[in-house]
Amino acid sequence: MRSEALARRTAMGDATRASASEAASRHALAALGDVRARTVALFAPFRDEIDTFPLASLLRAAGANVALPVIVGRDQPLLFRLWRADDPLAPEGAYAIPTSAPDAPEVIPDDLIVPLAVFDRVGARIGYGAGYYDRTLSLLRSRKQVRAFGLAFACQETAAIPAEPHDEPLDGMITEAGFLSFGGLHAHSLPR
């Protein structure tokens, strides 16, 4: 499932991905609602992932604090550092994923925008195989109420993902087609 969805994502082409990223960013802001003084954790786009930079700009303009994840170590939850608009990003870790500077303040997010390879319409996702977001969401949700929204292209959808005991469900899914809620949030739904 993962390789098929990622092949569909790659086949979109740069221009289509850029346009879809802009549309998804507008849907994400609407789905999140009032973000003033909330901390929203994004991910820096890696390879041909959906571009989160347009969403970062919208969130900052709406009064949110924006954070990025940091991989601390294998089998450990992520930590999050504040990412201000003028902060340069630098590749870090084994995957060379762009992150905030090491001296950026650590924060605990209120909302997480989660990367993924594949999703379905009941809140299941397949990531990239290391389990970082499942561990992180489990820890955060044991401490406070945290919302988690998948952000990807519509072509990454599949009919059904077999759930595993460690899988943390999403509260909603955002694509260029709209927002699909998996729990009592009010927003536009993806077409069926």
Rank of each mutant, 00 (worst) to 15 (best):
T10N: 11
A11R: 12
M12D: 09
G13T: 14
A15V: 11
S21Y: 07
S25I: 01
L29S: 00
A37E: 15
T39P: 13
V40F: 07
L42S: 04
P45Y: 02
P45H: 13
D48A: 13
D51R: 00
T52N: 15
T52E: 15
F53E: 15
P54F: 00
L59K: 07
L59Y: 06
R60P: 00
A61M: 05
A61G: 07
A61D: 14
A62F: 02
A64K: 01
N65M: 05
P69E: 09
I71S: 04
V72W: 03
P77W: 03
L78N: 08
W83I: 01
A85G: 09
L89M: 14
P91R: 06
Y95T: 00
D103Q: 14
P115G: 02
L116S: 10
L116I: 09
A117W: 03
F119N: 02
D120W: 00
G123L: 12
R125K: 10
A130C: 09
Y132R: 11
D134G: 10
S138K: 15
L140S: 14
K144S: 12
V146K: 01
L151M: 15
L151F: 05
A154K: 11
P162V: 06
E168G: 01
M173C: 04
I174A: 04
A177D: 15
A177T: 14
F179V: 13
H188A: 14
H188N: 12
S189V: 03
P191A: 10
